[in-house]
């Protein structure tokens, strides 16, 4: 079985993460019910004739993918795998409203076509003329993780050498406002804004500095069983809890944060990081934490705003990512330098 390595990581988020070569130096606090991403200059990545039909998510996805390939010095990946929780919700809302607004008359095809969940992966392939394996996962907070797991499987089983994998979600307007409304009606609801973004990666079986040691997903677990799950996961990978230098947790301030506390207690002196207070919560927000881990391992530096608790160690070699959403869709990702 082949090892899996991260060759590049690119993120478009509510912070200046795409255009900057820095690492969250110019962090801006976010607030409100929703927060959009800081969009790149799409013209640098997408031809006008192609971009004219693209909604935000497709543009973010294609741009992030393009830069991830460039950074990894790769022109053609052996597979393109994307994850998106809400899919192309902008065009979905657009087509839905034109059905309702025009009473099913004079409807045009563009929004319908572009609303298909695999549009991002398809447009990346079309732009690259890439005929390779192409798949899209749409399973809420496991959307990106499912994509990454598929990539890992392709590499381990030697079905591919270099895989482009990413997570993308756009805010849209209507559904998200209803989701926010429901959330705010609950005092124990999500305490960060809803956000959007796209993080893309090139993962490869060719050895590089940062290894994706393993990952696992779990649809359902209690606060107790999640500890057992993690212990099992670490055991399988012959890693001790004390080996983990940094834990990056997907805290969003809701009533399910005790899951993170439960995991956190397994580690004696962890540097625990959080990130959703910087980019917002969305189904593929966790892809941002993989970008973060990649930068931390490369630069051996943790920007202050990321620190939730604990002291920063001088040498950072092993990072664990843990995310869940509403007590469901748990995922572990283990990285090593």
């Amino acid at each position: 079985m082949k090892n899996v390595y991260l060759h590049s990581a690119v993120s478009i988020s509510a912070q200046n993460t795409f255009d900057s070569d820095g690492f969250l130096e110019d962090m801006k606090p976010i607030s409100g019910s929703t927060v959009p991403a800081q969009y790149p200059n799409y013209k640098d990545f997408i031809a006008p004739m192609a971009s004219r039909r693209m909604a935000t998510g497709v543009k973010m996805g294609v741009s992030a993918a393009s830069k991830a390939l460039y950074n990894a010095q790769l022109t053609q990946p052996d597979a393109i795998i994307t994850g998106t929780g809400m899919g192309c919700i902008e065009d979905t809302e657009k087509f839905l409203n034109s059905i309702i607004g025009n009473a099913e008359e004079f409807l045009t095809p563009t929004a319908f076509i572009q609303s298909t969940h695999n549009t991002v992966g398809a447009q990346i392939a079309l732009g690259l003329k890439c005929k390779a394996y192409n798949n899209t996962y749409v399973h809420a907070a496991l959307s990106f993780e499912s994509a990454l797991l598929d990539a890992q499987l392709l590499l381990q089983q030697e079905e591919a050498k270099h895989v482009l994998v990413g997570g993308v979600d756009e805010l849209g307007t209507e559904i998200i406002s209803h989701v926010r409304h429901m959330e705010d009606a609950n005092t124990n609801g999500i305490q960060v804004p809803f956000g959007e973004g796209a993080s893309f990666f090139v993962v490869s079986s060719e050895a590089k500095a940062i290894q994706l040691v393993d990952m696992d997903i779990c649809s359902t677990a209690s606060e107790n069983t999640i500890q057992q799950k993690l212990n099992g996961f670490l055991n399988n990978n012959e890693v001790q809890a004390s080996d983990i230098d940094v834990l990056i947790a997907g805290r969003n301030g809701d009533v399910f944060d005790p899951y993170y506390d439960s995991i956190s207690t397994l580690f004696k002196n962890p540097t625990e990081l959080h990130y959703k207070h910087l980019i917002g919560e969305f189904y593929t927000a966790s892809s941002f934490s993989l970008w973060t881990a990649f930068r931390i391992l490369n630069r051996q530096h943790i920007p202050k705003p990321l620190i939730y608790k604990g002291e920063t160690k001088s040498k950072i070699s092993t990072i664990l990512l843990y995310n869940q959403f509403k007590g469901r869709d748990h995922s572990f990702i283990l990285l090593k330098r």
Binding site: F106, T108, T110, I113
Partner: peptide
Amino acid sequence: IDALELIVMLD
């Protein structure tokens, strides 16, 4: 796809 858009415009 543009052709389909134009067909709707004509209508």
